[in-house]
Structure formats: structure tokens, C-alpha cells
Design a protein around this nucleic acid. Structure first.
Length: 399
RNA sequence: GGGUCGGUGGCAGAGUGGUCAAUUGCAUCAGACUGUAAAUCUGACGCCGCAAGGCUUCGGGGGUUCGACUCCCUCCCGGCCCA
């Protein structure tokens, strides 16, 4: 269930109820793809204020496998995470593994076959199977299996993936309802389900995709009395140069019923999140804070996160220049702690942050940890970046 | 003292007459990363130059050769063996 409590132009704040608690929107979920956020413990995550997280159907299915997760009592208990979890469907792996490396698998109307580059093992995913796995995981929110194409595919191939995504979404919805009945799941324990809007950079394809998905019914307005739940923005939200696709994000959001949750999958940089939120997107997940943290890029607050949503809205139709990209829209900056200039920099990493790293260590020490390639550096940096993201989201909730 | 093997760019270590400013790894200096095949990947890395290109290099000195990191002589330094 999703309730909107306030809106400011197209941006809105609200609340979701799941079987594992309530979530205030907008919110950001770190990616715990294989059941863990790389390098971070549950305590680390709690300490920086992480709540809901994303796990991955395909990766967990491969390892440790569903038999084990069922035996563990579901993914929450396996991970020992009490906050809500959302599972991604495996659709992104169709993009990152198969579309990018055609020898790694095959997509057909009925199913997608993943071939392991390690041992050649074949793993098959169908829309139905993805949903079944997600029920077995016991997550609070699930996503339909979609076909995620690279943005630089020709229009015909993007259109193709849109149609396949729609057909698969329908099959997922049928399977979803079937599983609810089969497993005797009560409404209050029902996992929310999200479809995904594809269409690349083509506004008309995005719109068409949204319309067809609405007909299937993924929202309280268009769907049955149970009230299905949300719409995602799929595939890359930036162009080949990394420029934010403002128009596409804004227009696609406007196609989604306002009572439905809007999930911008894989978004993004802090300024991308702020922009998306200003267009009405509610939920985000991304590997940036953790991966870039592990690679030594540290996010720093600027003037205590001073920015205004109207600033971003006024830039709606602007091309996002490289400058803006690099200065983080003016409310943050980054540093690469690997750079030699930090060797003797005994200042705190971020004076406006009170995470474990910033409370206890200097830039010089963090630089030393990275130069020494000790996992402690990655852990402190990833945790710091996540705290930065969580605080940014808190800021958005108050805007 | 005699014999023997060896001395290559910050380090390790290829190269044994021209295609060598010199493979590769490490270190160094930068960059990238957007529903995680990512503690990963790119690039630079003798000097000058934006570049084309030019200049000086493979322990020191000398020699052979059209041409030497590569062959010869000698000196210096190191390892090993014999006295």
C-alpha cells in the first residue's frame, strides 16, 4: 500500500506499508545483489541508516540456490535483515550478461537461457520462474522479468524489447496471482509487485509501454481491488555520454498513475536521484555509493546538502553539461582517495559527516588503507557513501 | 689469486646484430564506474612538444660493423666455484 502525504509540484513524499514495516518515500536501496552489500555487515548498514535493500533473483538462484534459502527460512532470515527487501527479477542480467555478451546466453519468447562462462552450466529463467523464485525468497517487493536492452540498440530492437517486456509482464502478473492463491498469502503479507517500463530513449515507446502495462494493472487505479503496486523505469536513464535523459524520465513518470509507486531502477548519481525525485519518482537503487566507495571515490556534502528541487526543475529541459555532472549539481563533490595528494592530508574526510570513517580517521589514513589494499578502506568508504545517500534521501523527504 | 655467470628504464625481469625508447609484472600518476561477471576496468609512465616529430639511453671507456642492449677488448661492480 502506498499513500502520498505531500507533494511539491511533481515531487512527492509518501509511505509504503510492507509485511516487514513501513517505508517513507522517497527512498534509496543499496544493492545487496547476492544477499550482502559487498564489504559491509548488517551492523554497518544499520549504523548508516540503511533500511530497505535490493537482492537479486538470478544471482541468489544460482548461489546459494533456492533449496538452501528455503531451508534458511527465506532471504530475510538467511541474511538476518529485518527491514523490507525488494528482489530484482533477473531482467538486468539479460542486459548485463546476454545483451552485452551474446555468447553468454539466449533470449527467446518463452525463456532466457544463461550460459555460465565458468563451467558452461545452463540456467533458464522464465517470467513465471522469476516470480516463483521471488516468492520463495520471501521478499516484500518484487519485480517482473523484463527485457532490458542497451540504449544504443536500433529503434526496432528497442521496440521489440518493449513488446516482450509487456508480454512477460502479463505472464508475471498471472503467475503472481496464482502464487498468492497457491501460497494462501493474506493481503497484509502480500509482496508488492512492480512492472518495468522499457523504450530506451524513445518517448513514444516509453508511453506505449506504460499504457500497455497499465492495462495489465500494476496500480491501484488500473488494477483489481487488491491494488497492484508500481511501475519502474528500466534500462539506462543516461545516454552514451552519461548525460541524464531528463525529458524521458519526466514524461515517463507523468504516464504512471499517481497512486502507483514509481521506481527508477538503477538510479543513480546523487543529482540524478534529486532530479528524478523532482519528476515524481519515489524509489531508487544503485551500486554507485558502494562500488565507487570500494574503488576509492568518496562523496562529500557541500554546504550541508543545500539545493532546492525547484532548481532542478528549472533545469528540466537543459542539457546537463559535463560541468554540472562533475560538480554534482552544486550540493556535493567527490574525491578519489587514491590520489597521491591525500598521502599527507590529515584533515577529516567529510567534516559534515559523522560516520565511522569521518569520526575516527583522516584522509591520510584512508589513503593509506587504499594504497595498502586493505578491505577496511573499502568498507569505511562504502559505508560513508551510503550514509551520504541515506542523508540525501532524508533531505528529500523534508523538502 | 684463478675460473665462471651476470650488470637493462623507480624495482623485478624479458630482449642476444637492424622491425628497440626497449615485452611483461610491480610501483607511480590520472581517469572511469548508474536495477553489481566490478577490492574492477582504461590511459599515461626516459627528456622536449598540443601534435607531427626531435633528442639522449641498456655499468664506465674503447673497438668491430652501413648499423650494437645484442659481437670483441678493457676497467669497475655483484653472485657462485676453486685456491
Amino acid at each position: 500500500m502506498f499513500e502520498i502525504s505531500a507533494r511539491k509540484q511533481t515531487a512527492r513524499v509518501g509511505q509504503i506499508t510492507t509485511k516487514n514495516g513501513e517505508i517513507k518515500t522517497p527512498f534509496f536501496m543499496p544493492d545487496a545483489t547476492r544477499g550482502f552489500v559487498k564489504s559491509l555487515s548488517g551492523n554497518d548498514l544499520e549504523n548508516v541508516g540503511v533500511g530497505p535493500m535490493v537482492v537479486n533473483t538470478y544471482h541468489l538462484f544460482l548461489s546459494p540456490g533456492m533449496e538452501l534459502i528455503r531451508a534458511a527460512g527465506g532471504v530475510h532470515r538467511f541474511m538476518n535483515w529485518s527491514h523490507p527487501l525488494l528482489s530484482d527479477s533477473g531482467g538486468f542480467q539479460i542486459f548485463s550478461l546476454i545483451h552485452k555478451n551474446p555468447h553468454m546466453g539466449k533470449i527467446t519468447e518463452n525463456e532466457v537461457v544463461f550460459k555460465s562462462p565458468v563451467n558452461g552450466a545452463r540456467n533458464v529463467l522464465t517470467p513465471e520462474k522469476s516470480i516463483q523464485i521471488q516468492f520463495d525468497l520471501g521478499v516484500d517487493m518484487m519485480v517482473v522479468l523484463d527485457d532490458v536492452p542497451p540504449n544504443d540498440y536500433a529503434r526496432e530492437r528497442i521496440a521489440d524489447s518493449v513488446e516482450r517486456t509487456i508480454r512477460w509482464a502479463e505472464r508475471c502478473m498471472i503467475e503472481y496471482k496464482k502464487q498468492l492463491k497457491l501460497r494462501n498469502i493474506e493481503e497484509k503479507n502480500r509482496p508488492l509487485i512492480f512492472c518495468v517500463i522499457q523504450g530506451g530513449e524513445y518517448l513514444d515507446l516509453r508511453k506505449h509501454c506504460a499504457e500497455e502495462l497499465i492495462k495489465i494493472g500494476f496500480s491501484a487505479i488500473g488494477g483489481p481491488a487488491l491494488g497492484w503496486d508500481g511501475y519502474g523505469f528500466g534500462a539506462r536513464h543516461v545516454d552514451a555520454e552519461g548525460n541524464f535523459l531528463a525529458e524521458v524520465l519526466r514524461e515517463t513518470a507523468s504516464c504512471i498513475p499517481k497512486d502507483a509507486l514509481r521506481f527508477a531502477l538503477g538510479v543513480g548519481t546523487p543529482e540524478d536521484i534529486v532530479r528524478c525525485h523532482s519528476y515524481g519518482w519515489d524509489m531508487f537503487d544503485c551500486v554507485i555509493p558502494t562500488r565507487e566507495g570500494r574503488h576509492g571515490r568518496i562523496f562529500l556534502r557541500k554546504n550541508n546538502f543545500q539545493f532546492s528541487i525547484s532548481d532542478f526543475q528549472s533545469k528540466l529541459n537543459d542539457e546537463i553539461s559535463t560541468d554540472q555532472k562533475n560538480t554534482g549539481g552544486g550540493f556535493y563533490e567527490t574525491l578519489n582517495i587514491n590520489n597521491g595528494k591525500f598521502k599527507e592530508d590529515f584533515s577529516v574526510v567529510d567534516s559534515q559527516c559523522d560516520c565511522e570513517l569521518c569520526k575516527n580517521h583522516t584522509r591520510s589514513y584512508l589513503h593509506h588503507l587504499f594504497v595498502s589494499k586493505d578491505p577496511l578502506g573499502m568498507r569505511l568508504a562504502a559505508a560513508h557513501n551510503l550514509k551520504f545517500y541515506m542523508e540525501l534521501m532524508n533531505k528529500l523527504k523534508k523538502q
